[in-house]
Write a protein that binds this DNA or RNA. Structure first.
Length: 405
RNA sequence: GUGAGUGUAGCUCAGUUGGUUAGAGCAUCGGGUUGUGGUUCCGAGGGUCGUGGGUUCGAUUCCCAUCAUUCACCCCA
């Protein structure tokens, strides 16, 4: 038997319904905030991710589905959504037009990792990106929108917040941190590697021994430039105004290299070790990294699979019609009837002659609201028997009456 | 990439201290005399006990390998 590849799952039945429900309602909320849908290709040039996400990140370093296509191009399946949207923004020359743009997207992402709870090789993200809106209020708006989405679905969360600074305050801080790390030989091998490639990521290390050492490390939050510091204060004030609960986590470092200033992460305690349900932040230099004109950006992405099991679905109601025949003569007639009904009604047809009892059972199981049956009696009088499965009311009506309902 | 756990019916799982026809619940299908569901009662079908090898008179059970899967590390959404 051929089965799906490791870490790749089919989406069907209950799950596909949840997926559609989730994506539709997220889209609705995003549109209210002025975002419009964008869809970018799943396959992109590998260089796009190397230059945006960063070669020092694990995502690019060891998790990409990368290969050479038949035209000898170095390509890969997108491991995240932001890079593609930024590329599209630049390609459309929106950077030169200096226009504000807000996009939302959703779809599959691919990372070659060892699967576990909440971590698939093909997974889905819903995300948004807002370009050319440097105002800190946009940061707040995006966090408020994310909060609204999670609350809509009844999902509990905790919000962690940090500022990663800008080109004015980050470089001196980084130097500061590297100097601190040089004197620490007890840190783990991973951290020693990070010290050279991407020093701020050591703060994120899960190793307890390292964390004990970093308790004394300098924090960027204490070394922000006046602008960043002021904006961060503003952001906190707005969130306080809107009763958003958050905790400041000065060691929150996003795993993608392009972030600066505002960085945030929504986490859940209810879904296992992979607890990050959404993450995002500002990336004011990314458009330039990808050869665009200076354009600020901010966005977030949510892991749909991680959220799916937390979603409280509205309970499904009975809907539609079930059509069945009670005698052989009615089989063709019921097929014609069902075909007409399907112009404007949800209709399931049973192709076999069955007892009334069997049809009612089927109709009930399929959660239909009405059960329509045709038997000898109905054929004689040229009518249909219909029963409302909720009210139990039943009557005979003509085809025209049914089709006109 | 590292570690641990699990593979028995469509699903959830029992079970065999190694022995002849491997069980249950749910699901499916049929029936409980005339055409009435979601709650009942009766019955039926469905398994080469993940795959390959080894030990043994005999393996679904013990051993090894392999594949799949789950969880955790790591990483991140």
């Amino acid at each position: 038997m051929i089965q799906s590849l490791r870490g790749m799952k089919d989406l069907l039945a209950d799950e596909s319904e949840r997926y559609i429900y989730f994506v539709e309602n997220c889209s609705k909320i995003a549109k209210n905030y002025g975002f419009s849908y964008v869809e970018t290709p799943i396959l992109e040039e590998t260089a796009l991710f190397k230059r945006s996400v960063g070669e020092s990140s694990d995502i690019v370093g060891k998790e990409m589905y990368q290969f050479t296509d038949k035209g000898e191009n170095d390509v890969c399946m997108r491991p995240e959504g932001t890079a593609g949207v930024v590329r599209a923004f630049i390609q459309k020359k929106y950077d030169k037009a200096k226009v504000q743009k807000k996009f939302f997207y959703y779809g599959p992402m691919f990372r070659y990792e060892r699967p576990q709870k909440g971590r698939l090789r093909e997974f889905h993200q819903f995300g948004v990106e807002s370009f050319n809106q440097p105002n800190i209020k946009e940061d707040a708006a995006i966090i408020l929108m994310l909060k609204e989405i999670l609350e809509f679905f009844g999902i509990g969360y905790k919000l962690e917040l940090n500022s990663l600074g800008c080109t004015a305050c980050m470089p001196p801080y980084k130097e500061n941190l590297v100097n601190f790390l040089k004197n620490e030989d007890e840190i783990c091998d991973d951290c020693k590697r990070r010290r050279d490639t991407n020093p701020i990521r050591v703060l994120d290390c899960k190793n307890q021994n390292c964390q004990d050492i970093y308790a004394k490390a300098p924090l960027l939050l204490d070394n922000l430039c006046p602008t960043c510091k002021g904006e961060f204060e503003q952001l906190k004030n707005i969130l306080d105004d809107f009763d958003v609960n958050y905790t400041i986590n000065p060691k929150l470092v996003r795993g993608l290299d392009y972030y600066n200033k505002t960085a945030f992460e929504f986490v859940s305690d209810d879904i296992g070790a992979q607890s990050a349900i959404a993450g995002g932040g500002r990336y004011d230099k990314l458009v330039e990294y990808l050869d665009g004109k200076p354009t600020t950006g901010i966005g977030f992405a949510m892991g749909i699979e991680r959220l799916m099991e937390l979603i409280v679905m509205p309970k499904s109601k009975r809907e539609g019609y079930y059509v069945g025949a009670l005698c052989d003569e009615a089989l063709d007639i019921s097929f014609k009837l069902a075909t007409k009904m399907r112009k404007n009604k949800i209709t399931t047809l049973n192709y076999d002659k069955k007892s009334l009892k069997a049809h009612l059972k089927n109709a009930d199981k399929q959660n239909a609201k009405y059960c329509v049956c045709i038997g000898e009696d109905e054929l004689k009088k040229d009518v249909l028997w219909i029963k409302d499965l909720e009210t139990k009311e039943e009557k005979s009506i003509t085809q025209e009456e049914l089709l006109g309902r």
